[in-house]
Amino acid sequence: MLATQRQDRILTEIRTHGAVRVADLVAALGVSDMTVRRDIAELARDGLVRRVHGGAVAPDTPARSTDEPGFEAKRTRSSAEKAAIARAALADVEPGQALALSAGTTTWLLATLLAADLTRRPLTVVTNGLRVADALHGTPDVDVVLTGGVRTPSDALVGPVADATLLDLRVDRTFLGVHGLDADGPTTPNLAEAATDRALVRCAAATTVLADHTKWGTVGLARICGFDEIDTLVVDTGLGAEARAYLADAVDRLVLATPTPRDAR
């Protein structure tokens, strides 16, 4: 296959799915990793794609984000979508389980639902999120384990203390909120938070990522994990068709949550 044919194929894949991964192109085109990377580099020089870690995206995809807003700033963004996602995630919780909830506004909404739902108790909830712990504090038949650690602007506890706490724990499912999501997986702008999020993933038998549609195409400084480590991804119906198709192939289960007028309150 000529270089121009390969590059046309790459552009077609990006137009269809919104993003491509180098590893997938190597398998599909039957060429080396370096050949694919050179093709992507040429397309990027022409402004036809934007290179990201592990692949390429459409040139108009939002660029890398290193900003880490505080909890209150994030809480007001896409609030209806986040409420719908939290409600959909609640369906995966069963009485008697041990859960881990990362810090974040969507996981905090899930925690408020758990605090109000008598049918899903008893539960044990491990969290590195101060707001998550506050939402569950004093809830009968819900034991809360707070990891400890250094506090971030988003009210997450991270660092060696948090990571050491999670090292020897085992939970049924981790619910992970993320800052960004692209073709290579979820990301965060905080290096220490990425390490603690990875520990939350490692301690779980299954992992559910909660991400509203605005997270797609936002790339934080640090990658958390790959799609092969994610069992379920819950997003809202605002996600575009191309991104849906890509993510449906990338994870075992893609759940689309539909916001309601009640969620917008």
Rank of each mutant, 00 (worst) to 15 (best):
E72V: 12
R50D: 04
A164Q: 15
N190A: 03
A41K: 15
P153F: 00
T174D: 05
G47I: 10
G159E: 15
L176E: 01
E68Y: 05
G96T: 03
L157S: 05
L256S: 06
T165Q: 13
A248D: 15
D249H: 13
L48A: 15
A192I: 07
G226H: 10
V251A: 03
E42H: 15
E229H: 07
I14V: 11
R77M: 08
I85F: 04
D46V: 12
V209Q: 06
I10H: 12
A28E: 03
P189A: 05
T196K: 06
T66L: 10
D172T: 08
S65T: 09
T218P: 03
V31H: 05
E42D: 15
V142Y: 06
A27P: 11
S79R: 12
V31M: 02
R6D: 05
A58H: 09
V20P: 00
L233E: 01
L239E: 06
C225R: 00
G148W: 09
T119F: 03
S32P: 10
G217L: 05
G226M: 11
T105Q: 00
A73M: 10
G148Q: 13
F175I: 06
R45Q: 12
G138L: 07
T207I: 08
A86F: 10
A58D: 12
A241S: 15
T106Y: 11
V49W: 01
R202Q: 14
E242C: 08
P140Y: 03
D134E: 14
E229W: 02
V20K: 03
P140S: 11
L11A: 11
V150I: 15
W216D: 10
L11R: 13
R151P: 10
T35V: 07
Y246M: 08
P59I: 07
A27T: 14
T76P: 02
L123R: 04
V161R: 14
V255N: 09
V22C: 06
L110V: 11
T127Q: 09
H17L: 15
G148C: 07
G54L: 04
T196A: 13
K215L: 02
L191F: 01
D155Q: 13
V93H: 01
W108G: 04
G104M: 01
L99R: 00
L25P: 05
R45T: 13
H53L: 10
V178A: 06
R120D: 05
A250M: 05
T105P: 04
A222T: 01
K215C: 06
D141R: 08
R202A: 15
D67V: 08
T139S: 13
T188M: 00
L101K: 00
L181K: 00
P69S: 03
V201T: 10
T232S: 12
R202K: 13
T165E: 13
